[in-house]
Design a protein around this nucleic acid. Structure first.
Lengths: 192, 192
DNA sequence: TTCAATTCTTAACATACATCAATGCGCTTC
DNA sequence: GAAGCGCATTGATGTATGTTAAGAATTGAA
């Protein structure tokens, strides 16, 4: 099942066929091979990536070389380092593909034109921004208030398919713990 | 020193004197006494609070009664539970005053009218949204990637005045650790 | 199928952080 | 000035999580 970006736009941003025609040139479709890096730390993030099929990852790498995963982006998600994209600053993050992934690639031009010709798109764009904030806020709340085990249980509840698609060490990274700790947590949970 | 909201708007959102006149009726000024709660969990957050003087706090309370502080808002900051405000959902958070605080209170009406009459305000509003995301994103990155000590050092570096204005247990809460742990971290740092 | 590489698990041990309880300090309030 | 309160500190101890190292399981490529 492919989640076509154009259909997604029609459904979520109420973009008309006609408006789509005007925007068509601004939407690039790309197939990203597994492990390909789309954004390197230090570069300015110039694109939104809408995932039609596959799985992207948004993460940082610290001084010791440890990866810290901020977000997984499966089908129908949009990934972008908004800070870098909006403020034109070098990003401190990476984006790569955990599977072969089909994306729609959007640039500033697209956002500007779409906002111009469609007030609905503008609203849609604000909605996903607000939604993003809600998401980050809740994530912080869990990180400062919940144990690793609780965070893990929440994760598998919320992202049911992700655990089947990524190595467990990446889930550990998302949760902010080591792979060994996650392995122990899982064992203890299975004993009950 | 009082950071007047109107002057702030002129400087940051390029609002003109004339536009201010139109908006004046939508801006409420309030003095909040210390410990007063402005938003309770379960209520819909109907207001933005711009802090002219004083200090607000944005936090949750979990099942065990533990407070988890997501944000301190000193002078010139804006506090709002955007998720609740935008989506009209009951908030899961609280906002209260850690000092007697003078705020400008804004509601949806204000945001709508200001966006209508001033494209600059619209841009300004988007800019603070994007900035908020950058802020949350970096906070998550530190929570999953850094030790409590590193997070503490970052905190006092970034928010130099806050430590003098709030009890240490609240800084501990912001960092996601207990007051006792923070006390020990501070002792060890002072021994070097 | 075999081999190599990666990932997961486990164990032993180390460290970071939490919990509980006691103390003392600085405030307020009477 | 005494009593009470909230807060910070400290110590003893417990628990969660990290580290290191090894082996088992899984995967992928030849």
């Amino acid at each position: 099942m492919r989640y076509e970006f154009k259909r997604y736009l029609q459904e979520n941003a109420e973009i008309t066929e006609e408006q789509l025609k005007q925007l068509e040139g601004e939407i690039q479709k790309r197939v990203i091979e597994e492990n390909k890096i789309l954004l390197h730390s230090g570069e300015v993030c110039e694109h939104f990536y809408y995932v039609e099929e596959g799985l992207l990852r948004f993460y940082s790498i610290d001084e010791k070389g440890k990866e810290n995963i901020l977000e997984f982006a499966p089908e129908k998600w949009i990934v972008v380092d908004r800070a870098s994209f909006y403020f034109n600053e070098p990003s401190e993050f990476y984006i790569d593909a955990l599977e072969e992934t089909t994306v729609a690639v959007l640039d500033k031009e697209f956002i500007d034109i779409a906002s111009e010709i469609s007030p609905q798109f503008r609203k849609y764009n604000e909605r996903i921004l607000q939604n993003h904030i809600r998401h980050l806020q809740n994530r912080i709340n869990r990180l400062i208030g919940k144990s690793a085990e609780e965070r893990y249980l929440h994760f598998i509840e919320r992202y049911q398919d992700i655990p089947n698609r990524v190595p467990q060490r990446m889930i550990a990274s998302y949760l902010g713990i080591t792979p060994e700790s996650l392995s122990r947590i899982r064992r203890e949970l299975s004993h009950n």
